[in-house]
Nucleic acid binder design. Structure first.
Lengths: 230, 230
DNA sequence: ACACCAAATTAGACAAGTCTAACCCAAAAG
DNA sequence: CTTTTGGGTTAGACTTGTCTAATTTGGTGT
């Protein structure tokens, strides 16, 4: 069995690989997990011994297929839990991340199966992140673009919100912005701010770091129901 | 914050106090938690330093009021989780103990509150064990008697089943014996076995160690609904 | 080519939780 | 009142995950 810590490292490495390119430098991992460089060195040695990552000394690491499967398993746990907490226990999307971050390491496969069944095998979590399937096939993350890259006048639909700050998430949902929301880009101010208009007509201004975190796609011209994310 | 291990020791000590009398000997704790005696010595030192137990060297330990509160908190988590797993996720009562044993250490107060709310503040778990209230007042466990102490012909209602063996629990529920079931003691055989008759008319024979674990009380002459446990 | 520097690794320490082996109490037996 | 003996404690070691301080490496700049 893997420890919760090993799972955390693996998840971090996997996530970093999805953004930047492998190999992932120890310093990057250290920053993400808020530990020191020597701690990373000793941990990646252990993960490499277990065959979960490949390691080149003084270069960095990359996940092996087995390591990727473990990472996907944890991510599946995390996103199923986030979905479960919001849908069944009435959590707000701002609160679910922290709770799921802990529980993801402690639920059984049985729990995972039953939660997935109760939720009817969901494909996206409350932030719009895709939930890895039961078979743990790699997911492709990159179909949407950042809101901040769009020009004035364009109409877009919110696909994912890659922000986990509770205050910012609460602000967004209070403003009416969640996955599925259709927005029109009203103004891109040169001072690091984007203003969008909701379908209700109300306008919301967002600082760049939040506009960067909101991933959007062409509006779904079809339906308004919740199955539109596929 | 207390570690999961410290919580386990505290829970074990509290449980042992409820059965036998304090002070609780280190060897008893060691057996319950399946660790060696020196391990218990070092752990009880830590718990005593924290003010959660009183310790007399070479004698044993007893919980302080603060320790009792912590134990009750964990027991509340455990029993709420067991109830939640059966009622909301469709677990069988035979499976819930192990899952709850892990998760009880990792859920937040928020999670506890929301689960209790969704379940409508339940007072008993699927095995008939009382769930400590939100205020963590000590509970009195001892209103029921063991089935094994009853004489032939007596009619009783199952109050609690103090068994956690999955096979035995599955056997009992398959036989139709769960908290609330009304039984008539048919035969107390001198070979370590008790035979009971269900209201359906079917008979079930149980070895003493299981009859000991089934706690019963006078049948509820009133209703048949689920609120009858108070 | 050579020195420099940032980043990585090694070395050594520490806390938590566990073990085995050795020693010590304290209560019961004589 | 002494001895026996079983359970408890002390001593010392190991693992996991972390740290700080010292050292090494490999690419960069001149």
């Amino acid at each position: 069995m893997l420890s919760a810590k090993m799972e955390d490292y693996l998840k971090a490495i996997y996530r970093l690989e999805r953004d930047g390119d492998p190999p992932i430098a120890p310093s990057t991992i250290a920053e993400m997990l808020d530990v020191t460089a020597p701690t990373v060195t000793s941990m990646v040695e252990k993960l490499a011994d277990r065959g979960l990552i490949e390691r080149e000394k003084y270069k960095g690491v990359r996940t092996t297929p087995e390591g990727e499967t473990v990472a996907l398993e944890i991510i599946r746990h995390h996103r199923l839990l986030e979905t479960f907490l919001t849908e069944q226990l009435g959590y707000d999307w701002a609160e679910v991340h922290e709770e799921a971050e802990v529980l993801e390491h402690h639920i059984s496969e049985e729990f995972e199966r039953r939660v997935a069944a109760v939720l009817d095998e969901p494909e996206f979590d409350p932030h719009g992140d895709p939930i890895p399937s039961d078979s743990l096939d790699p997911i492709d993350d990159e179909s949407a673009t950042a809101l901040s890259e769009h020009n004035e006048g364009g109409q877009v639909e919110v696909a994912r919100v890659r922000d986990r700050d509770p205050d910012e998430l609460t602000y967004l949902s209070d403003a009416g912005i969640t996955p599925g929301t259709v927005l029109t880009v009203e103004e891109v101010a040169p001072i690091g701010m984007v203003t969008v208009q909701l379908e209700s007509g109300s306008s919301v201004s967002l600082p760049d770091h939040i506009a960067d975190a909101i991933q959007v796609r062409a509006p779904d011209t079809q339906s308004e129901d919740g199955v539109s994310q596929a």
